[in-house]
Design a protein around this nucleic acid. Structure first.
Lengths: 219, 219
DNA sequence: ATGACGTGTTACTTACCGGTAACATACCAA
DNA sequence: TTGGTATGTTACCGGTAAGTAACACGTCAT
């Protein structure tokens, strides 16, 4: 099983102090990010890169410039940490929604167009698919606590999008919203399996076609 | 890390012979399935149930009514076995295509309709998404041999579908095919994360709408 | 009978990984 | 100063996983 060597029970090579603030891969410069936050953001990144099962807590802690004990003081278990990263990811998505709403207040059609554009752009940038959906694929144990977070996010996302579609005045807003969600999830998973030149490349066009078919001409 | 207890270095509980032919979960009755084939079909099943990283070779061998040594005599490594299961899954998909073609010879529109219907039915039946796409999500190591199999399958599938769309006489057959693929992948991943009542439920309707929009009225 | 061949069995090695214990250190507030 | 709190360090435990070695057994063709 060619498992990528990422873990090996971290043993810091150097004895020197690792520069009190090395910003821990999080873009913020001298913001003095607390260990807990470094751990969460690092975990997000590494889970995305290696998969949830593909990275160990030790490696996460080390990459966050801290250690396993501190990690376990903040999160009782790896599962807890997983749930937290999913929650943070959900919140990021919520921020995107808020941003769209402030940019195009009271203009449902423009908001829907912005949603497609934002996700399309995100699709170009992020090589990995939807972290939440990926977690659902990886965590098959039916009783895993992450499933609650996943379900919650999916319901919220679907509700918001359906609502937005409804505000455009289209008939069958539910079908429109679900169709767009299928295209989105499909594009994200397809991007992982087939790259950017695969079916994912037509995500934006497919969305526009769909919107047009539902009588929601954008722009 | 609440890992489902499935492996624990298999130790057969009974000493009695396990009935020379217990059919190893493969429907065939007294067909005397060879160990190799039992292993492959069992692995397909268990990978789907627990994920590729979630099940060990020992558990697979035991579930196939054989043992790890025999498994390793047929497949040099777990990675080899993974590739083989993906190849088998690809072939099953190929069989579906052949079936559709024989049922509606020289009728591209009917074939496309049958494709949607078949996948939709498969979506109802199989709780887990596309095994190939799931493998792509789980195996993040860029150099994993399975990626060649995955890519090959995806290219083949896309080619076949694009060809079929082209034969319906529609303009932009590539866009139609890619849109349908996005809907399919999306439905499969959404079914895992949100269940059957989620966005996946509108897969068939979304496909019909798309076909209609591309001037390919089915039925 | 005699091999060869596929298979079963047991035991082992190596390695990783989640999680914990015990102790040391730094910093901040009263 | 004192003491609490968050953090760092090291070492360890138990479990599981991939992969291998050595040997025993059955079957089938010659």
């Amino acid at each position: 099983m060619s498992i990528a060597v990422v873990n090996k029970n971290a043993k810091r090579g150097s004895t020197v102090k690792p520069e009190p603030e090395s910003a821990a891969s999080s873009g913020l410069s001298g913001a003095k990010v607390a260990p807990r936050d470094r751990i969460v953001s690092t975990a997000c990144e590494l889970f995305r890169q290696h998969g949830i099962r593909g990275i160990g807590v030790d490696a996460i802690a080390e990459a966050a410039s801290t250690n396993k004990m501190t990690l376990y003081r903040h999160f009782g278990s790896k599962d807890d940490l997983i749930c937290e990263t999913l929650r943070v990811t959900s919140e990021k998505s919520g921020a995107m929604w808020a941003d769209i709403e402030t940019r195009f207040p009271d203009d449902a059609k423009a908001q829907l167009g912005a949603w497609v554009a934002a996700l399309s752009e995100c699709l170009q940038r992020e090589p990995s698919g939807c972290d939440i959906a990926n977690a659902a694929v990886e965590l098959k144990e039916a009783d895993h606590p992450a499933h609650a977070v996943i379900e919650n996010f999916k319901i919220l996302q679907r509700g918001k999008l359906t609502d937005l579609c409804r505000r455009t005045g289209t008939e069958e807003p539910e079908t429109l919203a679900d169709t767009l969600l299928l295209l989105l999830e499909g594009a994200r998973v397809s991007r992982q399996a087939s790259g950017l030149e695969g079916p994912a490349q037509c995500f934006q066009r497919a969305c526009r076609n769909t919107l047009h078919a539902f009588g929601v001409g954008v722009r």
